[in-house]
């Protein structure tokens, strides 16, 4: 059976699993919580920085659909998205090994590499879909509660405003970059999943690695290792709001993350095609 056919089966299975939808519900919950906070609570936490710009008149409100999509991203990229995605990516092999279904599948004339490719493709699609879902959910909820408007973005070095068209463009870029980072995390989880027959292990290992790399990146002594840590690129998505966008830097970051992704897949393939299925 072709990778494509297997992918169809994987999608069919994945969609019927509860854990697939934990991510969507989790993200929706976060979006709703933030939106309600902005609607009924004190928005000054977000908007206060605007008013620190003296001698400016503010017309309308920066809180809108685009703004919501902008603020929920950093709230989810560092923990929730990687977690939800590891839940699925880290389960691809280990989960089936734990359930014994991997054994059942591989008694069939199924090429192991094709199966792994199908599952990895599924992980990629899931990352894309979940990230896109976050964006679409934020835009939809934001649109319903606040309407659509230009995007105000608070960065570490100041405030940026983008008109609607530009704002959507920047958000798309940012979500794309976030997805690439999350995909790198998912690839790590996927790799670990080929090594374990307990689907909690990949999630645990991945989260631990994220924290460890994050800490290493903070220690000056390990400065030289920084370009090789995937967590170094966890904030890449924020650079989509730079003015002007530093495309070479983005390309470099994306390239580094994709190297991670490809490397993880290759190692997974080496492991999985040789592995004894003993579960």
């Amino acid at each position: 059976m072709s990778t494509f056919g297997l992918f169809g089966i994987e999608i069919f299975k994945q969609f019927r699993r509860l854990r697939t939808h934990i991510g969507t519900f989790g993200l929706l919950g976060i979006v709703l919580a933030v939106a309600i906070g902005l609607k009924y609570g004190d928005a000054s936490h977000f908007v206060g920085r605007l008013t620190r710009q003296p001698n400016f008149q503010i017309y309308g409100s920066p809180v809108n659909a685009l703004f919501l999509a902008r603020v929920v991203l950093p709230m989810t990229v560092f923990l929730f998205l990687p977690l939800f995605v590891s839940l699925v990516a880290g389960d691809q092999i280990s989960g089936e090994a734990a359930d014994g279904t991997l054994r059942t599948v591989l008694t069939r004339p199924v090429n192991r590499f094709a199966l792994l490719s199908a599952k990895f493709t599924l992980a990629i699609v899931y990352v894309g879909a979940l990230t896109a879902f976050l964006g679409v959910a934020a835009l939809t909820v934001g649109w319903a509660l606040f309407g659509v408007g230009g995007l105000v973005s608070f960065g570490w070095d100041g405030v940026s405003y983008f008109g609607i068209a530009e704002g959507v463009h920047r958000l798309t870029l940012s979500y794309g970059l976030a997805a690439v980072y999350v995909l790198a995390v998912a690839s790590v989880a996927f790799l670990v999943s080929t090594l374990s027959s307990n689907s909690l292990v990949p999630i645990g290992v991945t989260m631990a690695l994220m924290v460890m790399c994050g800490v290493l990146g903070q220690i000056p002594y390990f400065e030289s290792a920084k370009p090789y840590l995937f967590t170094t690129y966890s904030e890449l998505f924020l650079r989509a709001f730079d003015v002007p966008v530093d495309y070479p830097a983005l390309r470099h970051g994306v390239f580094a993350l994709l190297v991670y992704v490809v490397a993880c897949f290759c190692v997974s393939a080496l492991i999985f095609t040789r592995k004894d299925i003993l579960s």
């Binding site: 710009q53 983008f162 008109g163």
Partner: peptide, 28 residues
């Protein structure tokens, strides 16, 4: 502070009345 394409409608009336409408929800 960077701004790209902040669209507004500006109304002026002599001697010193001014009114700004944010055309995309927000203006500063």
């Amino acid at each position: 502070f960077t701004v790209s394409n902040m669209r507004m409608a500006l109304y002026y009336k002599r001697p010193n009345k001014l009114h700004v409408e944010a055309k995309e929800g927000f203006a500063m």
